[in-house]
Amino acid sequence: MPYLARRVGQALVVLALAFTVTFVLLQALPGDAILIKFESPELGLSPEQIADIRASYGADVPAWQQYLHTVSGFLVGDFGYSVQYGTPVHELLAAALPETLALAGLGFLVAVLIAVSVAFLSTLAPFAWLRQALRSLPGVFVSVPVFWLGIVLIQVFSFQLKLVPVIGADPVQSLILPVLTLAIPISAPLAQVLARSIDDVALSPFVAVVRAKGAGPARVLWRDVARNALLPTITIAGVLIGELIGGAVVTETVFGRAGVGRLTEQAVANQDVAVLQAIVILAAVVFVVVNLAVDLVYPVLDPRLKRKAVAA
């Protein structure tokens, strides 16, 4: 299928460019991470020893050679060495990823649940004031800083209501607040787009036709409106993956959880370039793959695109 091939090609180009951009950004650093760490007089290392260390990190060759070296490393899953820890980056990532994936995955799921319930209830709820209130909810959610939300949730649920213990919580309990913290702001744009598309679709003539056949509002919403309204929402969901990753970083910091977020924070604080580059590229890969999947799922949901996709 040429469409698939072209779309995958495009995704690869974007990834290659993203890699290059981050490499240039991070390699153009004013400070040299290795020098910062090992040049301090306390360590008492001689210039020769530092040069050796630099060589062992591959930092002693021209930038373009480093670039080629890094590219070939990334292609086989070798992300280089962390300057800060001295361990391979892929080991650090492997240790941190499961925590973050669980948080992000659950967060996204809960966000979708919140968004769908808010959007549907704001269309079907029995009272106008309730619908109006539900309508304005996403607008508030989207304006809340993630880190602040996390702190407020801890304050309310852990310290005031004492529902979730601050220390000594089991793994499931310890996930509740972080997942909520991450999900609420992500759910807002989803709910907004979904509610707006439901409104748009509800105004289209085919809905009037179904209503004129005697269908009730709930049936129309569920069987006719929902699937049409889903299409733009899925596109937004794909774009929100970026927000999700950023949100996970902040959430982990607020709740003191070990994961990619903390790894990122430390990498920035210590100018641990290799770690940060690996994280950025990993995030970009996730983003590109998810959006590629969205594009490929689209024709399945919208039969109008099927022919185009095959023909193009």
Partner: peptide, 10 residues
Amino acid sequence: DVLLSIPGLL
């Protein structure tokens, strides 16, 4: 596309 593919915070 590249700018979009890298999460804003990162």
